[in-house]
Design a protein around this nucleic acid. Sequence first.
DNA 1: CTGAAAGCGCTAACAG
DNA 2: CTGTTAGCGCTTTCAG
Lengths: 334, 334
Amino acid sequence: MTERQNKRVTSVDIAKAAGVSQSTVSRALANDQRISETTRREIKKLAARLGYTPNEMARSLQTQKSTMIGVIMADLQNPYYPAVLEKLTQKIHAMGRQLLLLSVPDGVSVDEMLPSMLSYQVEGIIITSAVLSSRMHDHLRDLNTPVVLYNRSVESFFINSVCCENVVASRKVADLLVRGGNSRVAFIGGHVDTSTHRERRIGLQEGLRQHGLDIVSEDVGGNSYDGGYRAALNLLSQTPRPDAIFCIADVMALGALDAARSGLGLSVPGDVSIVGFDDIPAAAWPAYDLTTVRQPSESMVGKALSLLLEPKGSPPAAVRVPGELIIRGSARLG
Amino acid sequence: MTERQNKRVTSVDIAKAAGVSQSTVSRALANDQRISETTRREIKKLAARLGYTPNEMARSLQTQKSTMIGVIMADLQNPYYPAVLEKLTQKIHAMGRQLLLLSVPDGVSVDEMLPSMLSYQVEGIIITSAVLSSRMHDHLRDLNTPVVLYNRSVESFFINSVCCENVVASRKVADLLVRGGNSRVAFIGGHVDTSTHRERRIGLQEGLRQHGLDIVSEDVGGNSYDGGYRAALNLLSQTPRPDAIFCIADVMALGALDAARSGLGLSVPGDVSIVGFDDIPAAAWPAYDLTTVRQPSESMVGKALSLLLEPKGSPPAAVRVPGELIIRGSARLG
DNA sequence: CTGAAAGCGCTAACAG
DNA sequence: CTGTTAGCGCTTTCAG
């Protein structure tokens, strides 16, 4: 066997082999109408035979535009996000682009991760479950790099975002809980400084107040199963015991359910109603049968991408999509 | 407010501002020893002030080496993989590289996805839960692009892979199931044409045969919760009913558990022992309390990356890491 | 210690 | 319809 070439074949190689200029190759491969049918076919055949793969680096260096989209995920542990990521990869691939993924370790800010992504000249960045400093936001605007926040919104400055209608959905949950006979409703949040936490809490409170009630006690669970478990243990040990818990993430609601049942021997929804948010796959499993608010990730991902690739200069938008209440067996609802 | 520049600052901009040549800037930023301490500091300060980000595209075009690693995931729905992906992103980032992610939709082969990744000149590719045609494998070798299979192995041609010691671990499961008093052991596989399926099945069978037993019945669940649920429903409806089920993925084992309990009103492990594989987070939740084999993803990911970046020309290796039996409450074990 | 110049693989004027 | 040429932003000889 001969020594391997070990070199990628370039458009110059094809040009030589075809006896034409390199630019003709470039044009033929780009289906430029000015190239004759004959040579174009010849060149394409040659390219296939030589195993040619265009060099996207060189192309984007020349065209001054990249076709990579950066995605920064803060919470891959939360079972809601794998489905979001899968939809992102598939839609981005379908648009002929590539996805550059970064996940933010605990205790690291998105700001620190961004520069490494920016050196790859990404076309835009989608950030899930995290926000940006306003300084970084300005920097990105100077760089002309669009950003969309997924599942977070910011009021202090204008930035694209896609979120669920958190307040509306949570208000509805509160209303149905009260109509279902629950009157001591507790709240398990994620991180107090996030918009999802604030908005879902406000919605719950507003809904309760319409019935002359309020949140009786609350805790945070950091959007993790264990955090939800611990928070529920805490809330359900207080007297009088809450008769319902609204969790802002399904994964915490599952923890809360297990805390109630396995930890404290309570019946759900007999002793306590539990409602979540997201509609992760496990929410539908019979062991949990969790009543929850579905976030329509398919359409949210679609909107995030179209916001991202909108013509430059469009004013930033805060897109809201309605959540859908999925009624299962974990709560007494009116 | 003045019109925005909207142009990224390049090393030329810094050179102009500093009154030096562009190559001096390049060297200073690369900490080249030949540049005087004074100018180096000056240049770095300037770079920071102008918000300079090096263009990685241009760099890799010049140096003929990319710092992006491609990851192809076939099974992001399986809760085992998000943790793998998170470890990959973090390790890859720590190595100063970027991760290009592609997920394979159902019914699409990895071969079809590869070219789009190759045009980005990735340094190497990690493929989880899927394999490559030998044609594509040859092509990659010609391109000098290393590949590592994660959780799949191939016997027919040499390719790097990292897997759990599936046979050993499954044999152990069989042994302990029999010693625990189970004698009619059923098997729920994933896809018959995968190495994980075959190896875990063989291990189970070998272990049973040492006790003069064999697999009493089997089905496949496509590595999904629903598939596991359906398969268990099927197997547990046969007479005589199996008294144990070994599932090759935790997510199917959870489905099987729910099928046994909620679907058929059986007790686990009273009527049927259930054992999984992977040790996903949900396996530890009290609602399931699943006995399973832990795949040490931390070390598997580490090995995959070091295999990938090994000096070129090293012979391909099939790395095997031991699985760890995690005994919980879902099985009667000896 | 620093500058000039070449060139990575490609696209896109500009010529013919 | 096709070739020539310039140049994207960077690294890296080669000179000085």
